[in-house]
Design a protein around this nucleic acid. Structure first.
Lengths: 337, 337
DNA sequence: TGGAATTACGAAAACGTATTCGAAACAAGT
DNA sequence: ACTTGTTTCGAATACGTTTTCGTAATTCCA
């Protein structure tokens, strides 16, 4: 490996001068800078990141927390889209991405310790249990953090607007005449909380009374829970005319159950999903669903993270809300009375 | 940050002794080792990875090449499953994962240069254009490499057995009486090559003549190409009785077209997919498809990579073939003649 | 008891870079 | 001519480890 010393020897200047020239320190004559850079290129010089980090205490490296418990993490399209765009945005800014976990060369450590060991300039937190102690420790530490779909005080976050999405889907149903709306929700996370808020708000705004028996607890990303919940709703003495599913994938289970009962969509029952994954638009009928702009969420989150990394004093914490959009498919019909 | 020097002061021994004690060098009395480790823990000592790498030229960090051109990378479930299990396997061995790209602090560099800069101990190559020069450069460099679904001489690789999968699917159709089989394939990659080999081999083994008009070029992971190709096949004067799609997702496009024409599956036409993604088992009818063991592919590839990293002399290059399995759904019917 | 072997530790150098501070050279202003 | 200022560079130090080699102390064996 060719080092700064080799270049300094080849150029007949000191290592200090070479370092300054390569980093445009401003202290070196233009002529010398040109020469040093030329020789460096010729000799295929590559800086040593370890030496550089040791000296500057920065790495141009951002950590990512992605835990895939119950396969709702990396494996879920929503998060893989986020990760992918986050990766692209980071690369565009010259940052690399490293996964953060609780294992360090065999030893169990906290997330924070892992970050400190690797000297991540900042870290992106997504798809974890935000209520856990290790996550809290990290969030409240000195290392710059941006969270996704969860917000802490004094920490920037990027969130899919779940209140909006749920509200708009509900409003869409109501505007087509539906008043008996079954609502299947996922695990009781903060995301589910917001979805509920949006749902109830829409009902209230349009003067429709919420009915307890129409609210069913299911699971995210789990077709069989969609099947079960659908079953429950349809067995009610006064079943709903429309069913909202917690996500597109869970809907698939519901769809199977509806088909099994000989009901056709949307003639006999209207349905909506959530996420707007590619699959939903290929189904027949195409699913009416809420598209979360995962790509933008990933992009915005690392943009904000890098901004706080590079302007530690001036950059204010910010709650960034990313709007989604209604994918209007053919799974909801206009109800005539 | 507490350093080795702080510990040495607290313990009344030299920094050298502390370092050796912490790393179980074997040179230090058990008593001292115990004391040093105890104090280190009490003071919340964390090694400095930069200093360590600078000295040892290793990082316990493995690079991953994942390029998502045409969204066939990270975003595709097959690859996100691989990435996820690779991540878990690496973490279990105390290695971290960093994405490798061609951007270094704003400057464009080769993949190899990026790896050298970050001092990756090894690199996993998946989902890239293996014919490109930058990939060749990396593969033929000094840094340990494992490739996924592509093999180079003298380099370890882990591959989904595409010949097997295609062969078994075809054989399955033949065993149920199908002889007129439409074969839609993806882009002409090495994967497609192997799928073709398996397909033709099965036809030959069972004495069925291959027909050119039944072979259609489509795209991977692209429902609309599934629609088009299906269209072509059904418009033939003598259409096939079964259609094989290049993957489950592309099949969705074909499914829509079949439905549009009023054909029901499998009564009027039999179909198979490829990949065995979760979605395929939720469809009605459940898709008969070939499940690629992505989880195992990710696991095996980093296991092999770490093995060659830690035994540079003794570890031989190896071509690891990972078998898949037939998911027998309800999308193929027995043909009576 | 004398020498050899073993054990336990430390001094010092090295990894490659960034940065502080001072010096030299020269220009500019009075 | 003397100060003052500016530009350009280099010597030296520091970042926190790991590792070699030497040495003192202890044990072993004949």
């Amino acid at each position: 490996m060719v080092t700064i010393k080799d270049i300094s020897r080849a150029c007949g200047v000191s290592p200090a001068t070479v370092s300054k020239a390569l980093n445009d320190y401003g202290d070196i004559s233009e002529e010398t800078v040109r020469m040093v850079k030329k020789v460096a290129k010729e000799m295929h010089y590559l800086p040593n990141s370890a030496a550089r980090s040791l000296k500057t205490n920065t790495t141009h490296n951002i950590g990512v927390l992605f835990v895939d418990e119950t396969s709702s993490g990396l494996t879920h399209q929503y998060f893989s889209l986020i990760l992918n765009s986050a990766k692209e945005e980071a690369e565009a800014h010259g940052y690399d991405i490293t996964f953060i976990c609780q294992n360090l060369g065999g030893r169990t450590v906290s997330f924070l310790e892992h970050c400190l060991y690797r000297k991540c300039d900042g870290v992106l937190i997504a798809s974890v249990n935000f209520d856990s102690e290790p996550v809290h420790e990290l969030v409240h530490s000195e290392v710059p953090v941006v969270t996704i779909d969860y917000s802490f005080d004094n920490v920037s976050s990027v969130m899919s607007d779940n209140v909006e999405g749920s509200y708009e889907l509900t409003r869409h149903l109501i505007s087509l005449g539906h008043e008996k709306i079954g609502f299947i929700h996922g695990e009781l996370t903060s995301v589910t909380n917001k979805r509920m808020r949006g749902f109830f708000k829409a009902l209230e705004d349009y003067g429709i009374e919420a009915r307890d028996d129409y609210i069913i607890q299911g699971h995210f990303n789990d077709p069989s829970s969609g099947t079960e919940a659908t079953d429950l709703l349809l067995d009610l003495p006064d079943p709903p005319t429309a069913i909202m599913y917690p996500d597109d994938f869970t809907y698939l289970g519901g769809m199977a159950e509806l088909r099994r009962r000989g009901l056709s969509i949307p003639e006999d029952i209207s349905v909506t999903g959530y996420d707007g994954i590619r699959l939903s638009q290929v189904l027949t009928p195409a699913l009416t669903t809420w598209h979360q702009d995962a790509e933008r969420i990933g992009r915005e989150s690392v943009r904000k993270l890098i901004e706080t990394i590079e302007n530690p004093r001036t950059c204010e914490p910010e709650q960034i809300m990313v709007s989604g959009s209604l994918y209007s498919g053919c799974s909801v019909r206009k109800l005539v009375n």
